[in-house]
């Protein structure tokens, strides 16, 4: 039997910035080995949640623990890595020097050569970071997050600005990391990233968790399929949970796609390009959120 170890726990955490409630009564338990993805609109409280877990800000109410230690303790910091959404570095130091300096902070630094190679920094290793492009800065920031053999790594929009090969390489490394017991907490707006990396999704809006579950669970919870076709004007069809239109292209979300298609054919109107597909994660999330937001 594998014992689940709680890596991060947040209990009833509230955080205000002046009059703005950034996080409101947040409860979250993350087990070791999970890859959890926080998503939500801008200003939803994702970055504040990361800052609380990193000990860069303190909760007004509630408690955050990293393996049962305060997030700003040496113990917690020694086993966590972090890459912020934006990064800059001392402009007059080289990549190798910055890596060396950061590694030296940790009790068990990651071997230098592997780090440089894994994040595609070989060609940059002896350059000053001063004139780096966004993608180059991001690669260094990611390498730093993994420089201390951290057991928990927090990444705020990790692949923004990366080209597709760097992104794929990062995704495959992220999976290696969690498979070997590492815990990954990331925020992202890219749903393909979630489908590739995340084991669990946590949707945050207005400082609260609106929705939580595995990628599969969230798809299934919706239990709907997407039917689309082109025509002048569609007949009355049911059951339909959502109808959208783009020019002549009509798109239905339905809990019973087969019945919908049967009705469509029987109506004998002329249509073209019929498609029946699983809902995308994006549809699932948008739909579940709008259902939850609806007053009952």
């Amino acid at each position: 039997m594998i014992a689940l170890v709680t890596a991060i726990s947040a209990v009833a955490v509230t955080k205000n910035y002046g009059a703005v409630r950034a996080v409101s009564g947040l409860d979250l338990e993350i087990d070791a080995g999970e890859a959890i993805c926080l998503l939500g609109p801008n200003g939803a409280g994702k970055s504040t949640t990361l800052n609380l877990a990193l000990g860069l800000t303190k909760p007004d109410k509630g408690m955050v623990r990293i393996f049962d230690h305060p997030p700003n303790s040496f113990f917690a910091r020694n086993i966590t890595g972090y890459a912020a959404q934006d990064s800059d570095f001392p402009p007059n130091l080289t990549v190798r020097e910055i890596l060396k300096l950061v590694r030296r902070h940790y009790r068990r630094p990651t071997p230098m050569d592997g780090l440089i190679e894994r994040f595609g920094l070989s060609a940059l290793a002896d350059r000053y970071t001063g004139g780096f492009s966004g993608g180059e800065r991001r690669r260094l920031a990611l390498a730093l997050a993994f420089a201390g053999q951290a057991r928990i790594v927090f990444l705020d929009e990790p692949t923004t600005g990366l080209d597709s090969s760097a992104r794929n390489r990062f995704w495959s490394y992220a999976k290696t990391f969690t498979n070997s017991g590492g815990t990954l907490v990331l925020t992202t707006h890219h749903l393909d990233e979630i489908e590739t990396v995340a084991s669990r999704i946590c949707l945050i809006d207005q400082g609260r968790i609106r929705l939580e579950g595995s990628v599969e669970q969230i798809r299934n919870r919706l239990g709907q399929r997407r039917v689309s076709f082109e025509c002048e004007f569609p007949p009355d069809l049911s059951p339909v949970s959502k109808l959208t239109r783009n020019g002549q292209k009509w798109q239905f979300l339905s809990p019973d796609a087969d019945e919908l298609v049967r009705q469509l054919v029987q109506s004998r109107i002329s249509f073209s390009n019929l498609e029946v597909r699983d809902v995308s994660l994006e549809d699932a999330i948008a739909n579940l959120v709008s259902n939850k937001a609806r007053p009952t």
Binding site: L54, G55, L56, F74, R77, N78, T80, Y82, A84, D86, S87, D88, F89, P90, V102, H105, Y106, R107, A141, L144, G148
Partner: peptide, 14 residues
């Protein structure tokens, strides 16, 4: 105002 300063503070014993 630098991002580096914020990052540095997240390191153990910095």
């Amino acid at each position: 105002e630098s991002h580096w300063e914020r990052y540095r503070r997240s390191l153990p014993g910095a």
